[in-house]
Design a protein around this nucleic acid. Structure first.
Lengths: 281, 281
DNA sequence: AAAATAGTGTCTTTAAGACAATATATT
DNA sequence: AATATATTGTCTTAAAGACACTATTTT
């Protein structure tokens, strides 16, 4: 006993309602041992949407050697078709039956950035009814953290007016497609938390970096972050000094950089130590 | 131009393949401005599965007043039908178009426990192809933390042989339905992390509790947790003492409990302070 | 010399960590 | 009196927090 109704609501959208006989999956003990006919409507798609963050750095024009201005940016694409035609949206795409959603997000990310070894992390699902006018579409939201050097070539390759980086605050003030403003807001809160509790700062830095650069990156993502004795804590506190280590040159001397400063600064790299935080110890 | 093919693989399962015309949603700039006909297969369901944890406590028989034995347990239900008939599985159910997945998880949880104001948190999506023999079914996994007192009445109400608590280690050693072993393993790792970084311990405790009870709950979830000066840290460290506070009686004296001890112990409660952890400060 | 970033000295207060000792009520 | 849990005393070492000071190179 099968009924199949097609409702053509828009010229490129099909809604379908299917009545099918399926064993009850309710776990209520009253029903668990009896079969029950129900009406089932299945989702019209399960896409992955990706909030791609990068931190751009721009040299200050005034002085030669100075710390660059850094800004947290998010990559958006301009929609070419209904729905939300002309509006900016997160990159993403429908996942297929033959891949996990994570694989589909990875595929989209590679298409968008041209780089494959990039931090990609799942953080939430968005399923509010009517969130997508095309139908019942449940979106799986990821964030990606990309070093600006990876996006530079992409930006140059196709001077695409329809793919652009926006400062996060600017993006949040725009009229974005779907519920993408909420998704970006949630992603921002997520990376702010992760910036302080994990070593994701490394995703925005070169392999070797100075303490000032690290401090700047943290402050760019979490503007309220303010540690007066930052260098002391990160380098001389026993419980934390395992997170980063000094880079040495071939003579066993500390490797220095004077990219941004008159006095050369020690270079550091992240170790593979994973800090374990606890409110009880 | 619509093709619809029904494949009846099992008497209560319908697989469908639909070819429909839809605008390309790939974000590749090569395709962004051209429409492309594609074959779309849509998911057959988007259920929420819930890992319901509780901590049971059993008084030691030998002595009258002694700390109880506590054990982390997970609620499972025995399947009554194909697929995985007879095997134990997580409670859960298909979400519908008119609710968010979170609402559907909340609904299932209330059906299962009879209680509504319970900690419920989303943690991951499971979408490995073939994870469900009924079709392309993407499962959204939640964990719930329930005080044992909430489950006691439920357990008594229907002496349901098909709904049972299992010690987590025992559940993980069983041959569970679907990929539910992996889901439980991930949920366990998740609550172990959250137990140490948030105040979810409160979900397993009464409103008022002693330091020993709190310590026991943490150790039950995270067996490696071992803090020799626990009482000192939680009560006399400035940065942490905001997490809990002493309960006072009407005379302004500390309210005590001797449920588990000869010498009465001070009762505490959690404040609404949300601790902020950081590896940098 | 002024500017800009990098890093150290020094002092006070607070917390961590270990473990012995004391407190209170029950059996 | 022995027992079981709760709590405090005391000591040593480590870290937090503040802020003035020195270091290095460029302009």
């Amino acid at each position: 006993m099968v009924a199949c109704v097609f409702l053509l609501c828009h010229n490129d959208i099909i809604k379908l309602i299917i009545t099918k006989e399926r064993g009850s999956d309710t776990l209520n003990t009253e029903h668990a041992s009896s079969y029950k006919a129900s009406n089932y409507r299945t989702p019209d798609g399960a896409p992955a949407d990706i909030v791609i963050f990068t931190i751009t750095s721009e040299a200050k024009g005034s002085v030669k050697k100075a710390l660059p201005l850094r800004e947290l940016q998010v990559l958006l694409i301009q929609r070419k078709q209904w729905p939300f035609e002309g509006q900016w949206a997160l990159p993403g795409g429908f996942s297929t039956e033959s891949e996990t959603i994570h694989e589909s997000a990875r595929r989209e990310l590679t298409e968008e950035t041209g780089v494959s070894d990039v931090h990609l992390e799942y953080f939430n699902v968005y399923s509010t009814p009517q969130r997508d006018p095309r139908g019942w579409i449940i979106s799986h939201a990821y964030f990606a953290l990309v070093h600006e050097s990876f996006l530079e070539k992409r930006q140059a390759a196709d001077d695409a007016a329809d793919v652009r980086l926006f400062p996060v605050e600017e993006a949040l003030a725009m009229d974005l497609a779907f519920d993408h403003e909420i998704i970006i807001r949630d992603a921002l809160a997520q990376i702010q938390m992760k910036m302080l509790t994990t070593t994701i700062a490394k995703e925005f830095l070169a392999e070797e970096f100075t303490i000032s650069e690290l401090y700047q990156v943290i402050q760019t993502v979490v503007p309220t972050f303010n540690e007066r004795n930052f260098i002391r804590k990160i380098t001389s506190t026993q419980s934390r000094k395992g997170i980063i280590e000094e880079v040495m040159d071939h003579n066993g001397q500390g490797k220095m950089s004077n990219r941004y400063s008159q006095r050369a600064a020690q270079l550091y790299r992240f170790t593979d130590y994973v800090p374990q935080l606890s409110i009880y110890s």
